[in-house]
Write a protein that binds this DNA or RNA. Structure first.
Lengths: 189, 189
DNA sequence: CTCAATTTTCAGTAATTTCTGAAAGTTTGA
DNA sequence: TCAAACTTTCAGAAATTACTGAAAATTGAG
């Protein structure tokens, strides 16, 4: 398969990036390829394009399916499965965030809650618990922001994306948040 | 060193989490230990607590230093180096975000910009470029939000954290953003 | 139902990453 | 300047993770 150099570098880059995150190189490359592909492609095409064994591609696709990141479809008169990514980048991002939350954030919060419930047996434990509480609150705060952003409708997001680098708008929005919370004072919720 | 079970599970959890991200288990555990520690601790104490070799701890600390995540200090009459984390969780988070941006986001944006500059030699390439542009815009948008949030002063953040789960406030803030951009219409910036 | 097409599984191998002990390097107080 | 105290480096061992080919399982057209 003749992969244009432009696509090549994109694919390689995401392979590298993947391995910096928990995702392995193969999976990163497969997703990158699907992402820029004009039409859905099948596992053999992927294997040939990337020079991986068919079985490796199969495992990679299974992994991506478990992350709900690929769409699967069939074409008439062809028994093979064809894969693609959602057309909307934002949807991809949202799914990724949801899965990461489920796999990483939730278990962490559960662990922290558990630790915070324990009766501290020493000053050291008391201090550790206080630190865990701070972390717990930070994570809750950040994830709640994230989920708010996630729930923005696609239309609003499209508009925001068109604004491009005109970040000042976004800055203002942060300002108003700041004022809002000031009004609320330091009261415990 | 007698590590309380409460701290133990925290440390082990972050070891696991670390390895899901690019960070290795050792580094995750070291940071978790520092994070909940009442006072700065030295490399030997870390090695003993976690059961790692001294050299492994040394490498882990070096890694953490390269991420600017640890504070280093000395005590009078003691030549050893003592390590700790910032007191403010938010500062830790901010540093982490900055470093990740520098190491992962910036190189990705550079690659995408490069690819977008190329003259497309085919429809396939044209399509790939369009996809890359979408991704570029998404990343820019998300990172600009992030950096805005990062720049909130600690005081505001403290207040927000105290609000805790009263996320409705944060939701409103998202609403106002939505209105703001509507006013702006679909105009290119 | 049968069988060819296709996908998945899995045991073994390859590659990579992590970890260690020993040795080299650095720092500082006397 | 020396030497003890401490830290870092690094080559190889250990552990983990990725990848493959062959075989098993599944699927669907006829």
């Amino acid at each position: 398969m003749n992969t244009p150099p432009l696509v090549q570098s994109f694919v390689l880059h995401f392979g590298e990036m993947g391995s910096r995150w928990g995702i392995n190189r193969t999976v990163g490359q497969i997703y990158a390829l699907l992402y820029v592909s004009e039409r859905p492609i099948n596992a053999d095409e992927i294997a040939e394009s990337l020079g991986f064994s068919r079985s490796n591609v199969s495992m990679g696709l299974k992994e991506l399916e478990s992350w709900r990141l690929v769409k699967l479809q069939h074409f008439p008169g062809d028994r093979r499965e064809y894969f693609s990514t959602p057309d909307d980048v934002w949807e991809i991002f949202r799914t990724l965030a949801e899965e990461r939350k489920k796999r990483e954030v939730e278990p962490t919060l559960t662990m922290l809650r558990g630790a915070m419930m324990e009766r501290p047996a020493s000053d050291a434990e008391k201090h550790a618990q206080a630190r865990m509480k701070e972390m717990y609150q930070l994570i809750e705060l950040v994830t709640s922001w994230f989920s708010d952003i996630q729930n923005l409708d696609v239309e609003t997001l499209q508009r925001l994306m068109k604004l491009g680098s005109k970040v000042t708008k976004v800055l203002q929005f942060t300002q108003s948040l700041s004022k809002m919370t000031s009004r609320n004072g330091g009261e415990e919720a």
